[in-house]
Computed example of a mutant assay.
Amino acid sequence: MKVLYGVLALLGIVLPYSQLIPWIYEHGLQLPLLIEEAARTRIGSFAWLDVIVSAIVLLVFIRYEGKRTGMKMSLCWVPILGTLTVGVSFGLPMFLMLRELHLKKMTVE
């Protein structure tokens, strides 16, 4: 599973950024324009609100599950930062991969 999670985390970076990087190249780092375009339609707002709620849930899950399984916070910062800078598409599979590695390490010791 850890390999699958790693591939999904990679896709979780590549796919979203394949759309963001050309937009930034064309418009620059204009955050107000980015927000305006993202929220231009109701369906766009729906999608963004869904992502925001999912990101909050994921951050809570990372904190809770990390503590529950005995993961060090130094290991959990990567998916937390990834969720905040890329999104749930990266943060969730990255956390699941790190959790798999941690659980495997715990059973070996």
Rank of each mutant, 00 (worst) to 15 (best):
M73Q: 10
V14D: 00
R99K: 15
P79L: 02
V108C: 02
Q19G: 08
P22S: 05
W77G: 08
P22I: 11
H102G: 01
V14M: 02
V7K: 00
Q30D: 15
V57K: 03
K105H: 14
F46I: 13
F95P: 01
G70Y: 04
K67C: 06
E37S: 10
L92F: 11
L92C: 04
Q19W: 08
V86A: 04
L92N: 04
H102F: 12
K104Y: 10
F90G: 03
R63C: 15
T69M: 12
H102L: 09
M71N: 03
T107N: 14
G66H: 00
K72H: 14
L10C: 10
E100D: 15
A38Q: 14
G28V: 04
T69G: 04
M97L: 11
W48T: 08
L34R: 06
S74T: 08
A39I: 01
M1G: 12
I43Y: 03
Y25W: 13
S74V: 09
G28Y: 02
P16F: 02
F90I: 02
K2D: 06
L58S: 02
I80D: 13
L75M: 15
L33M: 06
E26I: 01
L34H: 07
F90T: 00
I24Q: 08
E65S: 10
A39M: 14
V57R: 06
L33W: 04
S74E: 14
Y25M: 15
L31D: 15
C76Q: 11
G82D: 08
I52V: 14
C76E: 11
F61A: 10
L96S: 02
A39N: 15
L59F: 01
E109V: 13
W48M: 12
V7C: 02
L11M: 07
R42A: 15
R40E: 14
G28Q: 07
M1A: 03
G44C: 08
V78S: 08
K2S: 13
S54R: 00
G6P: 00
I62Y: 10
Y64C: 03
K2P: 02
K67I: 07
K105P: 01
G6M: 05
I24C: 11
M97A: 02
S54W: 02
V51Q: 04
L33K: 12
